[in-house]
Computed example of a mutant assay.
Amino acid sequence: MTTSRRRLVHRWPVRLTHWLNALAMPCMFMSGWAIYNASPLFPFTFPAWATLGGWLGGAIAWHLAVFWLLLANGLIYLLYGLFSGHFRRDFLPLSPRAIGRDFAAAVRLRLGHHLGTYNAVQRLLYWGVLVLGVLVVLSGLAIWKPVQLQGLAALLGGFDTARYVHFFAMAGIGAFVVVHLALVILVPRTLPPMITGRAHEEVNDESA
């Protein structure tokens, strides 16, 4: 007989850091777009309604305030991921063969999804966004304090190059967020476990 039980899918530190990111990232993007508009890197700007801060000084104040929140949140997640085994348990193993196999299945819309288990493409994306997170922090610090942190700025190719690194790293994170939201819309049953931590699972009761 098949019965249903509630299984732990996401532990509370993962859920807490996830929702803090979800609240803070829009502020980070919108204040960043306002800062970008003051000195555009490319021949376009973001519409005023999509920015935060009202003026350059206000945007910088918002950006720095949210930055410290995200930095603390990111450090908590990294430490938890390393010492709890979350990274090893959920993001590994990862191989080119597995990535190719799961990517091909995803393109054909035949990639299965099991709550609490990440496929190879998801694991690659999570590792990628972690790297982008580190890169966006380092480049942001180099832009903020190019004189005091001139060694870091030089490592990134100088102040001007660091701005491009920061822009493209943030764009990569933005793309990850868009894909993440699209997957939630396509597979809405993944959302409740990120709130409650648990999901219903069908199991065979052999004793019945």
Rank of each mutant, 00 (worst) to 15 (best):
W68M: 10
L70N: 01
L70R: 04
L71P: 08
L71F: 04
L71K: 09
L71I: 00
L71Y: 08
A72W: 00
N73W: 04
I76G: 10
Y77G: 00
L78T: 13
L78Q: 09
L79S: 11
L79C: 12
L79E: 03
Y80T: 02
Y80D: 02
L82E: 01
L82I: 14
L82D: 09
F83V: 04
S84T: 05
S84G: 02
G85L: 02
H86D: 12
H86F: 15
F87E: 00
R88V: 00
R88D: 03
R89L: 12
R89A: 15
F91Q: 02
L92A: 11
P93V: 11
L94P: 02
L94R: 04
L94K: 05
S95I: 10
S95H: 01
R97H: 14
A98L: 07
G100D: 01
R101E: 12
D102R: 01
D102G: 11
D102C: 13
F103Y: 13
F103S: 14
A104N: 11
A106G: 11
V107K: 14
V107F: 11
R108L: 13
R108Q: 15
R108K: 15
L109T: 05
R110L: 09
L111P: 05
G112Y: 06
H113T: 06
H113C: 04
H114I: 01
H114E: 15
H114C: 07
Y118E: 06
N119R: 00
A120N: 07
A120I: 06
A120G: 10
Q122R: 06
Q122W: 02
R123N: 04
L124W: 03
L125N: 05
W127G: 12
W127P: 06
W127R: 07
V129H: 06
L130R: 10
L130Q: 07
V131Y: 02
V131L: 15
L132N: 05
L132S: 10
L132T: 10
L132M: 12
G133K: 08
V134M: 11
V134H: 03
V134T: 00
V134A: 14
L135I: 00
V136K: 11
V137L: 12
V137C: 10
V137T: 11
L138H: 02
S139W: 13
S139E: 10
G140P: 05
I143C: 11
W144E: 08
W144M: 10
P146R: 15
Q148F: 14
L149C: 00
L149Y: 06
Q150V: 13
Q150E: 15
G151Y: 09
G151P: 08
G151W: 01
L152M: 09
L152G: 11
A153R: 07
A154C: 10
L156V: 01
L156N: 11
L156K: 12
G157A: 06
G158D: 05
F159E: 09
F159D: 04
D160S: 14
D160P: 06
D160H: 09
T161E: 12
T161A: 15
T161P: 11
A162Q: 00
A162D: 02
R163W: 05
R163I: 00
